[in-house]
Simulated scan of single mutants.
Amino acid sequence: MIRVLIADDSSLVRAILKDILAGGDIAVAGEAANGQEAVELTELLRPDLVVMDIVMPVMDGLTAIGEIMARAPTPILVLSASVTDREVDLAFAAIKAGALDVMEKPAENLVGTGVSFAEKLRETVRILSRVKVIHHHPRRRREPLVPSPAPAECRRSVLAIGASTGGPKAVMSIVKALPPGFPAAVCIVQHIASGFARGFTQWLDNESSLKVRLAREGDILMPGEALVAPDDRHMTIAGGAVRLLDTPPVNCCRPSIDPLFCSLAEGKGEEVVGVLLTGMGRDGAQGLRQIRERGGMTIVQDEASSVIFGMPRAAIALGAAGQVAPLDAIPAIITELFSVQGG
């Protein structure tokens, strides 16, 4: 049985969430009307997951997340009241503080396009409740990387990153660590709730030395600039330019990582460094294998540092991983790869 604590200052929202969650394999262990109650009940009840509002009295959700992670580390799902700039900024500050994922609060009828909010919430609760939360992963020694130099006529020109559950913080840690003047274009596909891609992009842009923006149809890949796949569109690259597609979901996702990786493998081959991070399922594994088969370099996040090891595990099983590394080692590996150039 999955035990959930609901923290929201609105009794109506708590009642709606309780009605959605209670039953089957999920039980509501408790309810909190403010951040202080959320911290105390988390310590007392030890739930498997906390569903957390951000804007609350007495103690706001952001402060409460910090307290919970310090006193009783627990998986936390943030529910944002809207996708306005302020709410989204708070949501990503919550992820930085330790929350695992973010969703928008339910609409009046609780139903969006396709999958209902209720179904999506229950699915997310099941996934996140299995995550073992720890403060940090110890830095481990690794063998020095000796990248295979690119052929003299080829220079690595694209860094492609794919991530899902637990990905926003992982992607941030990589993008933030890239040096000023990074000599390649960066393409990012992050599975995230609809409406949050723009806020995720702005968060990356604010925190890093690279220019980060949402991809637009026809954008040309430029060194030192990162493009993020927008909501509900596959991002592919053809002839060095972005194509945004409304084609059906791939691996149950849109945007999906595989279309980006496959398009880069076909068009750029040896010029690509592909990175696959934490996430549920298999998305990205096939595309990463194609990058490796076409002469590109591939990096997969290791199990110990992954929130969910599904996608990395699938890539390793397919032989797509040129190197498996802890998250905190990946930025240095990337920097080495792009500094060892042919010509």
Rank of each mutant, 00 (worst) to 15 (best):
A177C: 06
P180F: 12
F182Q: 06
P183W: 12
P183C: 15
A184N: 11
A185N: 12
A185D: 12
A185S: 15
A185G: 14
V186G: 06
V186L: 12
V186C: 07
C187I: 14
I188E: 02
I188F: 02
I188A: 01
V189Q: 08
V189F: 10
V189Y: 08
H191F: 11
I192R: 02
I192V: 09
S194D: 04
G195P: 11
F196T: 02
F196P: 01
R198G: 00
G199I: 08
W203T: 00
W203V: 00
L204A: 03
L204K: 04
L204M: 07
D205E: 08
D205I: 02
N206I: 02
E207H: 09
S208P: 01
S209P: 01
K211P: 00
V212T: 08
R213F: 03
R213P: 00
R216E: 14
R216A: 11
D219C: 13
I220Y: 09
I220H: 15
L221V: 08
L221E: 06
L221I: 11
L221C: 08
M222D: 13
E225K: 15
A226F: 15
L227I: 07
L227C: 05
A229W: 03
A229L: 05
P230D: 06
P230W: 05
D231N: 13
D231E: 13
D232Q: 15
R233T: 14
H234E: 14
H234Y: 12
M235A: 11
I237L: 15
A241W: 11
R243F: 15
L244R: 01
L245M: 15
L245E: 14
D246T: 07
T247Y: 09
V250D: 08
N251W: 10
N251T: 10
